[in-house]
Design a protein around this nucleic acid. Structure first.
Lengths: 189, 189
DNA sequence: CGGTCTCTTGACGGAGTTCAAAGCTAGTGG
DNA sequence: CCACTAGCTTTGAACTCCGTCAAGAGACCG
């Protein structure tokens, strides 16, 4: 049931079967259909999500009413609105299934408990957040150095299979431009 | 000597004097004049830096030859080119002192050792990277939802004292536009 | 097959860039 | 402590990348 997560954790630290059992008692798993919401703006983000299979996206609605996708999570990535999750404040973000998605869930009221009972998971999550921060540094660099067309071409070369999986309007906002403009870029080839 | 860091760590976890001594043996401290480089593009980033006093910035030179500042670090923040630091690969970034700056340094060859000898620091760095990732989420949201002028006005309201500390051309690139345009925004008031 | 998303296309407009030149400021050495 | 200089900021005109709006064509799901 939680094997995908255990396998992922074991890439970084060795977790005994006892520890796995304790962890299992603090997790939930859940499945969402395409377009289902795991979390909606206006609510408090109750959980941190690990994607077993499928794809989630984090987005908000800007002042003009347009959806802005700020993050994707595919297999073996964690996703949450951290500000809302950590401080249990009202969120501006939505978390939605971009495909039919299976997740493993840590709810907020178990988050601290996990680290109390399984202090060795501190290392695992230190490495996870380290990697997320590293990914953000790279992302910001691309945003600051490339034109819209270059970001699209570059993303397409780096993640050709992922581009096939999601609608173009999600990709357009993730790359920082409009769906119309993406359409025009594609027409130029 | 390392008191600023110990104080910061103690906000999150309790570190015994013994542990402080072990940690001290793995740290260095250092001071840089304004404009001095802690790390330059083309080299491998050898350290993770904690700012005791002053201000550092992380930037790269884009294809047109313009400096793009992607991150600042002031008192009690950590900064590094993580991709280069973690994998000891050649870096595209510079780390420069925006003011005269005192830092505490963890060099790469001690980074893993710190966690082996002081596993409780895993929690501290888990929380540090969690916070950095949370800051990135907020930053990306601002970049995707506001015009250049709004980002400037907003940043100015949130961090008025910080804006005084740095040259405008650094702030302009951090906010994602040119120094000329920043100047025009300011003229409009 | 009907309706609702999603993608495309084109005309127009505007936010922000580029380039160049001049004005200002702050650090440095004499 | 002043003068010089290099670096930073301002200004303006021309330009361009990308957004906006609107209308139509496809695609997908029930």
């Amino acid at each position: 049931m939680y094997n995908a997560l255990f396998a992922h954790i074991n890439r970084f630290i060795d977790l005994s079967t006892d520890e796995q059992d304790i962890l299992a008692s603090l997790l939930k798993s859940s499945s969402y259909k395409k377009k289902a919401y795991l979390h909606e703006a206006g609510e408090t983000c109750r959980a941190n999500y690990f994607v077993v299979k499928g794809c989630l996206r984090l987005y908000f609605i800007d002042i003009k009413g347009a959806e802005q996708t700020t993050q994707f999570a595919i297999e073996n990535w964690w996703i949450s609105d951290l500000t809302s999750f950590l401080f249990q404040k009202t969120s501006d973000f939505y978390i939605q299934a971009a495909e039919a998605t299976d997740v493993i869930v840590i709810e907020h009221h178990h988050y601290d408990e996990i680290f109390e009972k399984l202090p060795r998971l501190e290392k695992y999550f230190r490495l996870i957040f380290q990697k997320l921060h590293q990914a953000s540094q790279i992302r910001i660099k691309y945003l600051y150095s490339q034109t819209a067309e270059e970001r699209y071409t570059n993303f397409n070369t780096l993640f050709p299979e992922f581009v096939q999986r999601i609608p173009q309007y999600m990709l357009a906002s993730y790359l920082g431009f409009t769906p119309e403009f993406l359409s025009k870029i594609r027409a130029r080839k």
